[in-house]
Design a protein around this nucleic acid. Structure first.
Length: 542
RNA sequence: GCGCCAGUAGCUCAAUCGGAUAGAGCAACAGCCUUCUAAGCUGUAGGUUAGUGGUUCGAGUCCACUCUGGCGUACCA
């Protein structure tokens, strides 16, 4: 429909020159009485033409070569909107296209041939993934899938660090538990990892080595056992959510491959770093940032900024067209430094899209639960999936705009999960499956021969909504807003349920019934494509 | 103190570059199943879009200030 109008206006622009320099866009009005599509172009031209917008609108409409079989009415409304009403015949034919495209409907090849890297989760292997990581994992995966839907070749990547102080403490924690289990009296510091999973790992060390490793360094077998066990656990959790990473990038390789040294040398050579009190500082003030920051501590150890810069340079060198980083708001302050560093070394940071999502607040018994991996005061994703299922978990995290705080009502999610909107969507899908089973028994088939019979408002509304799917996907992908897909599907499901109530299939004339079956099938295709994109299952029965 | 993100119905959230009468779900109340799934549909009620000023044809959306909450502001990651 938009394409039709775009072409129409392009033809008119030959006559009205001023239409060539203005951005003509069409939007779906909030109120149906304002037509199917509307443009504000006349109002945008008021300043330039110094004319009343309604006058301009009239001139534009006169210039349009309208086909009354397609457009039944054009009107000027309000301050100067031009509203277009499409014919029901034109609208009903849209179904044909959806059925033909089937599982491809909604995808586009706009970015075909482009590559993207999406980095997300990136939790260090110090414990199981918590609900906090869940939001990141689900959003990141949905973003990656959206990019795939519009043509990108996408790599999902997980960046981790198994070398730092956190990991040393982890190894120590396991070793202490190990010694404890072997009967030694130990003192377990408060700031060590308190979780039960540490004991599980310790007992697996006992199983494998017995008492042999008692005098081993905590950094050795203990840390390794912990890392391995935790990573296995993390990968398993991700796979329960349908997430499969292409790459696991170990920060440590940046040291062994001398990338860290290379970056350090590059900064020095360009005069972008200096030494002060035995530490190396990056001249971020010269790059437009607030203050200089330390990149190598006086101990000789780099701060996180340095490997982060080296890591991003590595990604730049892999030549992606788009690099997406997704992390929680606690990291919001770090990326401007990292980007500034990369830019100073000549890399095109416009390719990088840094996405920041706000935190998840867990509410239990009306109180906020403070989460900390260290204190083992957390709810794991696994526990949550066990309680409510992967579909609910995925949908819950993807349904909301990432830059608002997410209140996770634990009791509500557990007890009243039936009220989760995800069931509303799945129910619509299952209902259609049921219709198709039933009509088949009655020897009715889907037919596109008499689609023009679909003139009921509920039918027309449904078709128009289905038609919008492709552009909704494109919009969601280009704006990195996966929650738009969920919002769209909820609206679609509501319109379908209304159609279901208003327009019966069994009992209608055969030609009408078969046209309605075609419409139901089209609705099922769109629901399935949307839910599949979000990796939510599409049940045939509920 | 400074920076970033937010504040919309009792609760959770929408509102497509600044567009027309701010919309859904849940909760509340009143209805609809002898016919394709009632996990559904219809109706009622619920709002000074945190506040004050500004920009303009037009502001929930942009600007300034104030209030409230979250996250930062390390030679932690």
């Amino acid at each position: 429909m938009k394409n039709y109008l775009t072409n129409l206006f392009a033809a008119s622009a030959e006559k009205l020159i001023y239409l060539k320099d203005v951005d003509i866009s069409f939007s779906v009005p909030k109120s149906e009485s304002h037509g199917d599509l509307s443009t504000n172009v006349a109002m945008l031209l008021t300043k330039q033409l110094k004319k009343n917008p309604r006058q301009i609108a009239e001139e534009i409409i006169k210039s349009l070569e309208l086909d009354t079989n397609v457009i039944t009415n054009v009107e000027i409304a309000g301050p100067g909107f031009i509203n277009f009403h499409f014919s029901s015949e034109y609208v009903s034919q849209i179904i044909d296209n959806i059925l033909t495209e089937n599982e491809k409907f909604g995808k586009s090849d706009k970015y075909k041939g482009k590559t993207a890297n999406v980095e997300f989760v990136s939790a260090n292997p110090t414990g199981p993934l918590t609900i906090g990581h869940g939001r990141n994992a689900v959003l990141g995966d949905a973003l990656a899938t959206l990019l795939e839907y519009v043509g990108y070749d996408v790599e999902r990547e997980y960046y981790f660090n198994n070398a730092g102080r956190q990991m040393r403490v982890l190894g120590d924690s396991v070793k202490l538990r190990y010694l404890e289990m072997l009967g030694e009296t130990i003192e377990f510091p408060d700031d060590y990892y308190q979780g039960e999973y540490i004991k599980d790992i310790a007992s697996s060390v006992i199983e494998e080595y017995g008492e042999k490793v008692k005098s081993e360094d905590a950094e050795g077998v203990f840390k390794q056992a912990a890392e391995q066990a935790i990573f296995t656990d993390i990968k398993n959790t991700l796979s329960r959510l349908g997430i499969i990473m292409k790459n696991f990038f170990n920060e440590h390789t940046l040291y062994t491959d001398k990338k860290i040294d290379g970056v350090l040398a590059a900064f020095k050579e360009k005069g972008l770093s200096y030494e002060n009190e035995d530490a190396v500082w990056l001249k971020l003030t010269d790059m437009g940032n607030e203050q200089d920051k330390v990149i190598v501590k006086s101990t000789g150890e780099p701060t996180y900024r340095l490997p982060d810069i080296a890591y991003h340079i590595n990604k730049f060198e892999r030549n992606y067209d788009l690099i997406v980083d997704l992390f929680g708001s606690d990291h919001a302050a770090t990326y401007p430094d990292v980007m500034a560093g990369c830019r100073a070394l000549g890399y095109d940071t416009d390719k990088v899209k840094v996405m920041i999502h706000q935190f998840v607040t867990i509410m239990e018994n009306g109180e906020i639960v403070k989460m900390s991996t260290r204190k083992a005061n957390f709810v794991t994703i696994d526990e949550l999936i066990d309680e409510v299922g992967a579909d609910v978990v995925r949908y819950f995290f993807v349904m909301r705009n990432m830059n608002t705080h997410l209140n996770f009502e634990l009791d509500l999610a557990k007890k009243q999960s039936d009220e989760n909107p995800v069931f509303y969507l799945q129910y619509a899908h299952a209902r259609i499956a049921s219709i198709l089973r039933m009509t088949e028994q009655e020897n009715l088939k889907s037919s596109t021969e008499f689609l023009n019979l679909l003139i009921h408002p509920s039918e027309q509304r449904l078709i128009k909504k289905l038609h919008q799917f492709a552009e909704e996907i494109l919009y969601a992908a280009e704006n990195f807003e996966p929650n738009k897909v969920a919002n769209y599907l909820e609206e679609l499901a509501a319109i379908f349920h209304k159609f279901y109530t208003d327009c019966r299939i069994l009992g209608s004339d055969k030609t009408l019934a078969e046209a309605r079956i075609a419409l139901a099938k089209a609705a099922q295709i769109v629901l399935r494509n949307g839910l599949t994109l979000l990796k939510v299952s599409t049940p045939e029965r509920m």
